[in-house]
Design a binder for these strands. Structure first.
Lengths: 249, 249
DNA sequence: GATCTCAATATGTGATCATAAAATGCCGGC
DNA sequence: GCCGGCATTTTATGATCACATATTGAGATC
């Protein structure tokens, strides 16, 4: 709302946001939205208004339109009847579908990554996992989500496939909002036990065990999500979306 | 170029295209582009100009922008350095990646579909396959592509998963242009032999055999594509893109 | 005759306008 | 007090404008 005009202003050295970074606006918006989806800025089913988002991000509706289109194409958002968009509401059946595909794709990526795994990668993964454990200790929900995601994707990036990674990212964006909402329920346990087994298997070069660990981790997450969904149904939690995440643009 | 203004004209009953179909324009554009990608309207690497496409489709650039965004998000198009888009050029390595994911995803979908397969579905598949065989007989390239695609997707649709199908569609859109270009090479053989085995396995209810058939079909296609790519390299064929497909809008 | 330079053009990108439809809220009636 | 119909507002969507950059073409120089 504060600075609606960003680029076309004639003043040469008053960059609205950070520095002289001349990057594309929609790129920035995209990363903001993706992070927001994964970290609980939007609830499942919450309709996102184009203009309000644009106002909140301090741009014209145009870049937001482009980003929302892409997110819809990726399945991260669904269009409502009137053309608005919202994060998908995942019922038990769709969640089951989604996590079956996760098992196939991420299991495959993990196995391939294990083939190319270097000691440096393993060390990096251990560092990330340490931060994840610390976040769990502190009950830092956003930290748990971020570090868990970082752990998985640093592993998957090791598979050296430009094809499978975007698909996995699309899947994560689809269940991101539901995942965050579930973590708000106190009874939702977070289990990072599989990560240790995965790291061990990586060190031993046991590709099958790595795949097994990932699949087991995915199954555990699925069970936890299903149980929370079952006990809570689709009743919207009294928690508000973490809109404060959109203040530091 | 002929009628740039479509909706905002005050004349009430002069629909630029077909009928009073009040459907969204970008939806129409999207289906046109998807079909075009699968049927050889665009060559791999051929840059698509936003304004020229819009002119060819008789709309303003806006709906085309939205569609191109979505296709980029789906991996069906890649952005060049200056922000233009083009169908991806698939090198042997990326093609190998792509088809590995195809095996995993489509094999899974086929197995799931086999579980729910009804006699009606099998009959439908046989009808499609008959049309495919006829198209092969007539050396009708576009027919081959269309009916083969229809065969695979009618099977996959039987898996009743709303998650896996869009992913498979994204993969097909990625290799569509390369696939068409390869079929222009006379030495490219088309093999629909696996389809018969798949149908037999469906009738017997042998899910594993169905999956095996699909995987074998994918492997065969991959080998054929790799061999054509190998013998032809990336040398652009003298064939022009089938731009005439864009005349019947 | 080939190459370098500069102008003309084309292109993507963000902003704004126009419009129709849908959601919202308000008010009167029952 | 509750519900239905109308006016207001909000919404997405297509079109157009403005601008900066990249590409292209021709013309002049070596």
């Amino acid at each position: 709302m504060q600075n609606a005009k960003a680029t076309s202003t004639p003043d040469p050295d008053t960059p609205p946001e950070k520095k002289g970074e001349r990057r594309q606006v929609h790129e920035h918006v995209l990363s903001r939205m993706r992070r927001g989806l994964m970290i609980g800025a939007f609830l499942p089913g919450q309709v996102l208004s184009l203009r309000k988002l644009a106002a909140g991000l301090g741009t014209s509706p145009m870049p937001v339109r482009e980003v929302l289109s892409r997110l819809v194409a990726a399945g991260a958002l669904e269009e409502t009847a009137n053309g608005s968009v919202a994060p998908p509401r995942l019922g038990p059946d769709k969640l089951e579908d989604l996590f079956s595909v996760r098992e196939a794709l991420e299991g495959m990526a993990a196995e391939m990554a294990a083939r190319y795994a270097t000691p440096a990668l393993i060390k990096e993964l251990e560092a990330i996992n340490a931060k994840l454990l610390a976040a769990i200790e502190k009950r830092d929900i956003a930290g748990c989500l971020s570090f868990n995601q970082e752990f998985h994707f640093t592993l998957y990036r090791g598979c050296r496939s430009e094809v499978i990674l975007p698909l996995i990212e699309a899947l994560w964006l689809q269940f991101g909002p539901t995942m965050y909402m579930s973590l708000l329920v106190p009874s939702m346990p977070w289990n990072a036990a599989d990560h240790g087994a995965i790291l061990d298997a990586l060190k031993k070069g046991d590709r099958t065990a790595v795949k097994r660990g990932i699949v087991h981790d995915i199954r555990t997450t699925k069970r936890a999500l299903l149980s929370v969904l079952g006990e809570n149904g689709m009743a919207d939690l009294p928690f508000a979306a973490r809109s404060e995440l959109f203040s530091d643009f």
